[in-house]
Design a protein around this nucleic acid. Structure first.
Length: 1139
RNA sequence: UGCGUAGUAGUGUAAUGGUGAUCACGCGUGCCUGAUACGCACGAAAUACAGGUUCGAGUCCUGACUACGCGACCA
């Protein structure tokens, strides 16, 4: 027996199948039954278990699961090792918050050890919830043996990779792992650098009012600058604006846009009235000069006046490129150097310069701006500052935010007012350093304008004081040196969507900066580099055994008794002292590495180092099964990982092994609220994945997310959409299965794999749906192989709803419930069974629960036999089966075309009925079908019976030319004609549209006809026309894409009687249904005589009896009665009783 | 502010440059047709804007606008 069900309950199916999977170890079997050497490699991007899983995780993991399952069905072995991301700032910040401490307290109020223990305890906080959602959503991944980034084996592999980078050298001998200076956000008040993450916390950007100044940089006259000088003594200055006057003593360059237009303006210094010529962007002229003053006589103005009118004369505009290389005098000459005198204080080029504000010239101080630093490096401008004892040039502002002594006028002063304490700031004589600097410039005739300026500026979230951009010592990976190669490797990756790969990712690679690895934190992978105190010697350790060797060496040389720490984290690793080649002690560089390096290392670190392979000198000495697990065939994560995990995977693989880490990548979009807003806890509009899955089932949720929009588009999540999916797809499939089960059980029919009726022997309708099914198999596989799950899901939806349920089953209904077992009936069962079975298989990747449930229900009655015979249906789960192979021989394009005609003809006929208010139960005599060629007639004739029964019409009359009724119209076939005619298309199309019947007939007969368009003659063939029938005068017609149907709406007594008979059948069936009779029960029917039914009963009694399974049908005046409405006017008394 | 992506019925979506623009929900109308009212049939309803290329543009180009994402937030 096939199981039958009252109603669809997806959550109950989830529970049943989940239990089955667990009991029978289906996931494990699905992996293990496949050949290890035929692998489809998948990498799990590790989530962090210290936050709750959200609905977007369900989305991302559906994508992952889908392709893993699909490839399993295709026969690949798909290992899926789970993983957990356990390090990183978010975790540290959370722990700090919960412990009520700040970074400064670590090592003081709490030991590093205790702190790290707290982090370790936190990272797996929600692991149970994660495991739970993983199971409930049907995500198959190995949860029992995950990789965990804080484990020593994992850390050790990261070290190995770092060492490889350390040893790798560029062409000019630079190491890929190096220590250097960069400009980073820095909080002097907290004494620490800040990550961009910290800077982007809410409230960090605040509106502040700073003193801004336009400074005047005096141009040195020389050959190159001569064009700016009218005479040798002219005082020519370049204007540059800044909101951070404290950076002016560090100025070494001015940056201009090479394509921006600049002008020289003769005028007078606003503060001293001395004659001066200033250079600024032409577009900015109006911001600094009042047009009205251009006419004033060129005489010095009165500096005492409140708002003096300053005369000026603007010169000819010239491109910024002419300014490049010009030298200027240092603005505030506190510190300089021979190098600077040689190469500094020049005008350089920057494409980021705008004329939105300022003067179109950017004051450039490399230590206090990342752009500045880059521009200076590119232009070869040396750093400005004071060399420390190691010869490294240190900035003119120290780490407390104070000017160094060399900046004599301001030595020891904080550069920002906010760094002074409240008292000092409240002193009536207090003047911020910025202001003092501007006053000095004013006095020295170096200021052009001083004013307050309001703007947004980042603040430290911990101290609430403004951040400085400041050079800090950090370890870097020289990614910029691998830029081209990484770009090339990226070309070989199949990105979904393509634009993310070429756009966001590609451009990121093209502009690749070195990767700042250093984090001054505690909970993470420690940098495995030990240095002597003077930094002259260092070692990079690449494994635990190597560390052990180094420790032994150090113990021997330094007389210590150290061991490899039991835990590679801080603080233990910090205690390890190693010895340098020259015998000096070396201590570890205290930095941790960026957590993103952790996750990018997972292809290797998830397996760990294999010491034997290492000893043998293997290029990739990682444990088995690394060799068959690299690179990944497929990975998938959110687009936010483009510069995160996707990048780190790619960068590490590219730089360490000159390889890609993954071949196909799907980057899925965001899951938004249904109104398109972001889901966020603070807005309280997050969707709980547990509740969603409990309510609607995992399959409906998964299917909704994949079918509604491409995974890479943002999804506006709306649970109404899940309901729709459930009703439409799963409801329809469920009903189709239930229909099948109901009648198969009644007939005692079971699938017999060994005795299947050849397709050729089955009906037109059967072969049609089989053809559709195999077309679906093809489309589905193409879509899935192309990583297009949405296309795959929609193809399935169309098949199930339109083809299988609403055409095949609807038209086949009678075959199932009429009469005894016949060949035709058997063919119907086998056909429907096959459709359901294959649908279950194709749906299995997207909807793993329902599909398995369906498959198991279909195959349970024959499982034992199938196992005994080793036939395809022997598998206990759809997920263990082999995906149905595409089979072109089962696809009959002509048949599909015929059926398409049938469907459209029916639709047209029904539409006429609708318009004429002629219900379908009322039979009509005929439809007229104009035909244009013999082939069409033959095609329609093949599906004639289906059409007639579907629209309840007695006959089809084909109308040909000879009938004289047919009126043909022609339209140009633009596709074929376009190429031929080009410009003359329009004229020709007009002529063709005006073709008469005779012209069209002539063309068809002759095979070609000449027309003249715009004076050129063209030969037109029948293929160049789209011929349609236009109208049938005097008939009720409907047309659609060249098809025309006319309906004979003449009603005769006989037709009316038959219609009434069918109405009666329907009413009696309803009574049967109300009384809950079984579909096979025989009945007796009595009807009270009524004129409206006289004729129907007289002529169609046998028909009625047969349809309703009545043994007798009598007309009698004797009750008891039930009343049924025959139509709006007539109410009948009837009696239906069990025979 | 830079870069990227996208703007198609009320909503969500589809459409190798080829001419009545797809599908679903919702809406309207009619139907409890012996699997399915969580259903069926039939309708009404859209290419955001301004230009351009082309015989022909939803599709290609340009511009402004809007939304989202990623950067930058520095002068």
């Amino acid at each position: 027996m096939y199981r039958e069900f009252k109603s669809l309950n997806l959550p109950a199916i989830d529970a049943e199948i989940l239990q089955f999977w667990r009991d029978e170890q289906i996931f494990e079997k699905s992996v293990e039954q496949r050949d290890p050497n035929n692998s489809f490699v998948f990498y799990e991007g590790p989530p962090s278990a210290n936050g709750m899983p959200g609905i977007h995780h369900v989305m991302a993991r559906t994508v992952k699961d889908l392709f893993c399952r699909y490839n399993t069905l295709k026969g690949f072995r798909v290992e899926r090792k789970g993983g957990w991301d356990t390090h990183g700032l978010p975790i540290e910040l959370q722990v700090e918050k919960e412990l009520g401490i700040t970074k400064e307290d670590i090592g003081k109020k709490i030991t590093v050890d205790e702190y790290n223990q707290a982090c370790r305890a936190t990272v797996m906080r929600y692991k149970d919830l994660w495991d739970d959602i993983t199971r409930k959503m049907g995500y198959w991944v190995d949860l029992d043996n995950p990789y965990i980034t804080f484990e020593d084996q994992y850390i050790e592999t990261c070290w190995w990779l770092l060492q490889r980078l350390y040893n790798k050298k560029t062409a000019n001998g630079d190491s890929f792992l190096y220590k250097g200076f960069t400009i980073q956000p820095f909080s002097p008040a907290a004494g620490t650098g800040l990550s961009s993450h910290e800077l982007n916390m809410p409230g960090c950007y605040k509106e502040v009012t700073d003193t801004s100044v336009v400074a005047m940089f005096k141009v040195r006259p020389d050959e190159q600058s001569a064009f700016l000088f009218d005479h040798a003594d002219e005082d020519v200055r370049v204007l540059a604006w800044t909101t951070t006057p404290w950076t002016l003593p560090s100025n070494v360059a001015l940056t201009v846009g090479p394509n921006i237009e600049y002008v020289k303006v003769k005028t007078f210094s606003p503060y001293t009235a001395a004659p001066v010529s200033v250079v600024l962007a032409k577009e900015r002229l109006s911001a600094y000069f009042d047009v009205a003053n251009a006419e004033l006589p060129m005489e010095p103005f009165d500096t005492a006046a409140k708002k003096p009118a300053i005369p000026f004369r603007a010169g000819e505009a010239f491109k910024g490129s002419r300014l490049l290389g010009l030298r200027f005098e240092q603005l505030l000459p506190y510190v300089t150097s021979p190098e600077l005198e040689k190469d500094g204080f020049r005008i350089i080029s920057g494409d980021w310069v705008t004329t939105e504000d300022g003067t179109g010239v950017v004051h450039t101080a490399p230590y206090f701006g990342a752009d500045d630093m880059r521009a200076c490096k590119e232009a070869g401008i040396p750093m400005i500052g004071i060399a420390d004892e190691k010869g490294v040039i240190q900035p003119l502002v120290d780490r407390q935010g104070k000017f160094v002594n060399e900046v004599t006028d301001f030595a020891g002063r904080y550069v920002k007012a906010e760094y002074y304490n409240k008292e000092a700031q409240n002193d009536p004589d207090f003047k911020p350093t910025d202001l003092l600097i501007t006053l000095k410039l004013k006095e020295d005739n170096k200021a052009f304008r001083i004013e307050k300026y309001k703007h947004n500026y980042p603040h430290c979230w911990r101290t609430d004081k403004p951040v400085l951009y400041y050079p800090l010592d950090s370890w870097f990976i020289r990614a910029s040196a691998a830029k081209e190669r990484l770009s090339e490797l990226n070309q070989t990756i199949n990105w979904k969507p393509e634009s993310t790969g070429s756009g966001r990712f590609g451009q990121w690679l093209d502009n690749l900066q070195d990767w700042n690895l250093s984090r001054s934190r505690y909970w993470g992978v420690p940098l495995p580099i030990w240095r002597t105190e003077d930094s002259s010697e260092e070692v990079c350790v690449g494994s635990i055994p190597e560390l052990a060797t180094e420790i032994e060496k150090a113990n021997a040389a330094l007389g210590l008794n150290q061991q490899v720490p039991k835990d590679l984290h801080r603080p233990y690793i910090d205690d390890v002292v190693l010895v340098s080649a020259s015998g000096k002690p070396m201590r570890r560089e205290l930095d941790l590495i960026d957590v993103w390096f952790d996750s990018g290392s997972m292809p290797y670190a998830q397996w760990g180092l294999d010491y034997e392979k290492m000893a043998a000198g293997a290029d990739k000495p990682f444990k088995t099964p690394f060799d068959v697990s690299y690179p990944a065939s497929f990975i998938a994560e959110g687009v936010d990982q483009t510069r995160g995990w996707f990048y780190t995977l790619h960068a590490i693989a590219g730089m360490c092994f000159d390889s890609v880490a993954f071949q196909n990548v799907v980057s899925n979009g965001l899951v938004l609220n249904k109104d398109g807003s972001k889901m966020s806890k603070s807005r309280g509009n997050v969707v709980d994945p547990f509740k969603t899955i409990d309510a609607y089932g995992a399959d409906a949720t998964r299917w909704y997310m994949m079918s509604n929009a491409n995974p890479w588009d943002n999804l506006k999540f709306d649970s109404d959409g899940i309901v729709e999916t459930r009703n439409k797809y799963f409801g329809t499939l469920f009903n189709t299965y239930n229909f099948f089960a109901l009648y198969a059980n009644l007939d005692g029919w079971k699938m017999d794999e060994s005795n299947v009726m050849p397709y050729a022997d089955r009906s037109e309708l059967d072969r049609w749906v089989i053809s559709k099914l195999y077309s679906l198999v093809q489309d589905y596989r193409e879509a899935m192989d192309d990583y297009e799950p949405t296309r795959a899901a929609r193809a399935l939806e169309t098949f199930v709803d339109e083809h299988l349920s609403n055409w095949y089953v609807r038209l086949s209904r009678r075959r199932f419930w009429r009469g005894d077992m016949s060949d035709d009936k058997r063919a119907a069962y086998e056909t429907l069974f096959e459709c359901l079975m294959v649908t279950a298989q194709l749906s299995a990747s997207l909807a793993p629960f329902f599909s398995d449930w369906l498959y198991r229900n279909l195959t349970a009655p024959i499982r034992e036999k199938a196992i005994a015979n080793g036939t395809p249906l022997r598998h206990e789960s759809v997920h263990l089966s082999d995906l149905t192979a595409p089979d072109g021989t089962k696809i009959d394009v002509d048949l599909e075309k015929r059926m398409d005609y049938a469907q459209r003809i029916c639709s047209l006929a029904l539409s006429i009925r609708k318009k004429e208010k002629l219900r379908v139960r009322l039979p009509l005599q005929k439809i007229l079908l104009p035909i244009l060629d013999e082939a069409f007639m033959a095609e329609v004739d093949g599906v004639k019976d289906l059409i007639l029964s579907e629209i309840n019409v007695k006959e089809i009359e084909y109308i040909t030319d000879s009938s004289g009724l047919l009126k043909k119209g022609a339209k140009a076939n633009f596709k074929t004609l376009g190429a031929k005619l080009g410009k003359d298309m329009k004229a020709a199309a007009d002529q063709i549209a005006a073709f008469t019947n005779e012209q069209i007939n002539d063309l068809e007969k002759a095979g070609s006809v000449a027309i003249t368009a715009n004076g050129t003659e063209y030969a037109i063939t029948p293929e160049d026309l789209i011929i349609s029938t236009e109208d049938l005068p005097g008939w009720k017609v409907a047309t659609d894409a060249g098809l025309t149907v006319a309906l004979d709406v003449t009603l005769t007594e006989a037709l009316l009687a038959e219609g009434t008979a069918r109405d009666l059948v329907n009413r009696i069936q309803n009574v049967r249904k109300e009384k809950d009779f079984n579909v096979t029960d025989r009945i007796e029917v009595a009807i009270e005589p009524h004129p409206a039914i006289e004729a129907a009963v007289a002529h169609y009694a046998d028909y009625i009896k047969a349809e309703v399974l009545a043994n007798s049908l009598i007309l009698t005046a004797e009750g008891p009665w039930e009343t049924v409405e025959l139509n709006d006017e007539v109410t009948l008394n009837v009696r239906v009783s069990m025979a």
